Amino acid sequence: MIEEKVLIEIGKTRIQTLIMDLSGIMKMEPEVMDHLMRIIDGTSLMGCETVITGLRAEVVKNMISVGMRLNEKAQTLGTLQQALNKYLLS
């Protein structure tokens, strides 16, 4: 459902940068990681850059253990504030 909504909004409003803040995520199952990658792939195909913020150490550790590499498909920043400063204030 999230994937569909994101792709529809990118198409309607011509979003160039999608910021996804994951700071509220304490644990991420492999299926959720796979879904996240599909969203990133879909946004990329539509010409939209994805920025991921707020990844917790536990989530990153799980991503690494399953071989997931976000940095090849999306930019990552430590906090949502960093992303807002970079993309909205500059």
Results as ranks from 00 to 15, higher is better:
1 M>P: 11
1 M>R: 03
1 M>T: 07
2 I>W: 07
3 E>G: 03
3 E>D: 09
3 E>L: 12
3 E>W: 11
4 E>H: 05
5 K>G: 08
5 K>R: 06
5 K>S: 09
7 L>A: 04
11 G>Y: 05
12 K>R: 10
14 R>H: 11
16 Q>I: 03
17 T>A: 02
17 T>L: 01
17 T>H: 00
17 T>S: 01
18 L>K: 09
21 D>H: 10
21 D>R: 08
21 D>F: 08
22 L>F: 13
22 L>N: 10
22 L>S: 11
23 S>W: 08
25 I>K: 08
25 I>M: 12
25 I>H: 07
26 M>S: 15
27 K>G: 04
27 K>Y: 11
28 M>G: 10
28 M>W: 08
28 M>C: 14
30 P>N: 01
30 P>R: 07
31 E>D: 11
31 E>H: 14
31 E>R: 08
31 E>L: 12
32 V>S: 15
32 V>Q: 07
32 V>K: 09
32 V>F: 06
32 V>C: 06
33 M>K: 08
33 M>Q: 06
34 D>T: 02
34 D>R: 14
35 H>D: 05
35 H>S: 03
36 L>F: 00
36 L>Q: 08
37 M>D: 01
38 R>E: 11
38 R>G: 04
39 I>K: 09
39 I>R: 04
39 I>T: 05
39 I>C: 04
40 I>W: 12
40 I>G: 03
41 D>G: 13
43 T>R: 01
43 T>D: 09
43 T>I: 02
43 T>H: 00
44 S>D: 09
44 S>H: 06
44 S>Y: 01
45 L>S: 07
48 C>S: 03
48 C>E: 06
50 T>E: 00
50 T>L: 03
50 T>D: 01
52 I>L: 03
53 T>E: 02
53 T>G: 03
54 G>D: 02
55 L>V: 01
56 R>P: 01
57 A>K: 08
57 A>V: 10
58 E>N: 08
59 V>T: 02
59 V>S: 06
60 V>K: 00
61 K>D: 10
61 K>P: 02
61 K>W: 07
61 K>Q: 11
64 I>D: 06
64 I>M: 05
64 I>L: 12
65 S>T: 11
65 S>V: 05
66 V>I: 11
68 M>G: 11
68 M>Y: 07
68 M>Q: 10
69 R>K: 15
69 R>N: 15
69 R>S: 14
71 N>Q: 14
72 E>P: 15
73 K>F: 12
74 A>G: 06
74 A>F: 14
75 Q>E: 14
75 Q>P: 09
76 T>N: 15
76 T>S: 12
78 G>F: 12
79 T>S: 14
80 L>A: 06
80 L>T: 06
80 L>S: 05
81 Q>I: 12
81 Q>P: 14
83 A>N: 02
84 L>S: 09
84 L>P: 03
85 N>Q: 13
85 N>K: 15
86 K>V: 00
87 Y>E: 00
88 L>F: 05
89 L>M: 15
